[in-house]
Amino acid sequence: MKTKPFLTHDDVKRILAAAEAEAQANAWAVSIAIVDDGGHLLALSRLDGAAPLTAQIAPAKAHSSALGRRESKAFEDIINQGRVAFLSAPAVQGMLEGGVPILVDGQCIGAVGVSGVKSSDDAAIARAGIAAL
Rank of each mutant, 00 (worst) to 15 (best):
A91P: 00
A91I: 07
A91H: 14
A91K: 12
A91L: 09
V92Q: 06
V92Y: 12
V92I: 14
Q93C: 02
Q93D: 09
Q93N: 11
G94C: 09
M95C: 08
M95E: 01
M95S: 03
L96C: 05
L96Q: 12
L96A: 10
L96H: 12
L96F: 15
L96Y: 14
E97V: 13
E97C: 12
E97K: 09
G99Y: 12
G99W: 08
G99D: 11
G99T: 02
V100G: 00
V100N: 00
P101F: 10
P101R: 06
I102D: 01
I102R: 00
I102V: 13
L103E: 14
L103M: 15
L103V: 14
L103P: 00
L103W: 00
V104D: 01
V104T: 04
V104I: 13
V104M: 09
V104F: 00
V104K: 14
V104E: 12
D105A: 14
D105I: 04
D105H: 12
G106N: 13
Q107E: 15
Q107L: 14
Q107G: 02
Q107N: 07
Q107V: 07
C108D: 01
C108R: 02
I109N: 07
I109A: 06
I109V: 14
I109F: 05
I109D: 01
G110A: 03
G110I: 13
G110Q: 10
G110N: 08
A111V: 06
V112M: 15
V112P: 04
V112C: 06
V112I: 09
G113C: 05
G113F: 04
G113M: 05
G113N: 03
V114A: 05
V114D: 01
V114K: 05
S115M: 13
S115C: 03
S115G: 15
S115E: 08
G116C: 07
V117H: 08
K118Q: 15
S119V: 11
S119A: 15
S119Y: 02
S120E: 11
S120G: 08
S120I: 05
S120H: 12
D121V: 13
D121N: 15
D122A: 10
D122G: 15
D122P: 12
D122E: 09
A123H: 09
A123M: 11
A124S: 13
A124D: 07
A124L: 15
I125Y: 05
I125N: 01
A126T: 07
A126F: 10
A126M: 03
R127Q: 13
